[in-house]
């Protein structure tokens, strides 16, 4: 990877962090409502994995902690922020909110609130890719807790049985809300669970984006080659609470400090400095430019965008206008009956 790509990657991670932290502020100002799950601390996983995928070509799906995955797929940040604000210009036209960012134009097929629900949806996207005979794959990002759902087992079985081109990325941040992994999973190393379904799998450091990219490269090549699914686990940590109402009372301060010392942005910027790719001044300038972009482009767009019209409440429930060939009305006497 050349140095301009490496600078871009650092900028992206800084941008994603600032985006999340800025939405935290907007939530505190009550401009964002509902549940808001922030990705701060886990940036290297989505950024690194999706850097190795084909943007707008491969399908991507995830849970409710979805802003960064959507943006790395190519969803415009201003539209994601506008969605958090509930504006009609948002990714989901203000209908979805933080947990339901969609941008099918770049094959980001949504954020879903039901833990474990995206497993089969991802396998279905992969089934479609295989059926159409393209070289696309589907990538499913979910947390460690999701692996305790029945859909994990059902889907891994079918994905393996049918050799579907799907990559399961487990973002193991050690907690499902306040329940630590050793209190909810009989198997601590999540990648081992995939072996029960004959799916190759591996576990890696999720804080070092170079490690993430190397692992993702192998996993994606495996899936794209037609060899069937792959399950990759990244060890990571969310720096904030599960969602906004969470005080992290269940975690020790020592543990938090340990993981903060392994902040993915710090790790990567230190590396770029050591290798002489960037200086402290370069990075400070980069941070300043990101702040500026987020304020003047992203947040401003969200603030200035209009709300959806209340008259349009029913819009998007079913296809509009309905196609009379299939829907009706039923004309008595016509077409037999």
């Amino acid at each position: 990877m050349n140095s301009s790509d490496r600078k871009r990657l650092l900028r992206e991670m800084i941008f994603f962090r600032r985006f999340e932290e800025r939405s935290f502020e907007a939530y505190m100002e009550r401009k964002i409502g509902g549940f808001l799950h922030l990705y701060s601390g886990q940036e290297a996983v989505a950024t690194g994995v999706l850097e190795m995928a084909r943007r707008g070509h491969d399908y991507v799906i995830t849970g409710y902690r979805d802003h960064v995955h959507a943006m790395k797929c190519g969803a415009p940040a201003r539209e994601v922020m506008a969605e958090l604000y509930g504006k009609v210009t948002g990714s989901s036209r203000g209908r979805g909110g933080s947990m339901h960012i969609f941008d099918p134009s770049v094959h980001f097929m949504g954020g879903y609130a039901l833990v474990g629900q995206p497993f089969p949806l991802a396998a279905g996207l992969a089934l479609a890719c295989k059926h159409k005979g393209t070289d696309q794959i589907a990538i499913c990002f979910l947390g460690d807790g999701a692996n305790n759902q029945g859909t994990f087992h059902e889907t891994l079985n079918m994905a393996s049985l049918w050799k579907l081109p799907v990559l399961f990325v487990c973002e193991n941040n050690l907690y499902a809300i306040g329940t630590r992994i050793d209190r909810s999973s009989a198997v601590i190393d999540q990648y081992k669970r995939a072996t029960a379904y004959n799916i190759p799998s591996s576990q890696h450091d999720g804080q070092d984006i170079d490690v993430v990219m190397a692992a993702a490269r192998e996993a994606i090549d495996h899936v794209r080659s037609g060899a069937g699914p792959y399950f990759v686990e990244f060890m990571t940590y969310r720096q904030r609470g599960h969602s906004m109402s969470d005080s992290n009372a269940y975690r020790s301060k020592d543990e938090e400090r340990e993981w903060l010392a392994r902040d993915p942005i710090t790790i990567y910027s230190e590396r770029l400095k050591t290798e002489g790719v960037m200086s402290d001044d370069d990075i400070a300038e980069m941070e300043k430019a990101v702040l500026e972009e987020i304020e003047t482009d992203v947040v401003r767009f969200a603030e200035e965008s209009p709300e959806p019209r209340v008259e349009d409440l029913n819009q998007y429930c079913l296809e509009e206008p309905p196609d009379p060939r299939w829907i009706g009305p039923l004309v008595p006497g016509e077409r037999h009956g």
Partner: peptide, 12 residues
């Protein structure tokens, strides 16, 4: 999950 797979496939 197979219903979900159908739903996912339909989205593509």
């Amino acid at each position: 999950s197979y219903t979900g797979i159908g739903i996912g496939a339909s989205m593509a």
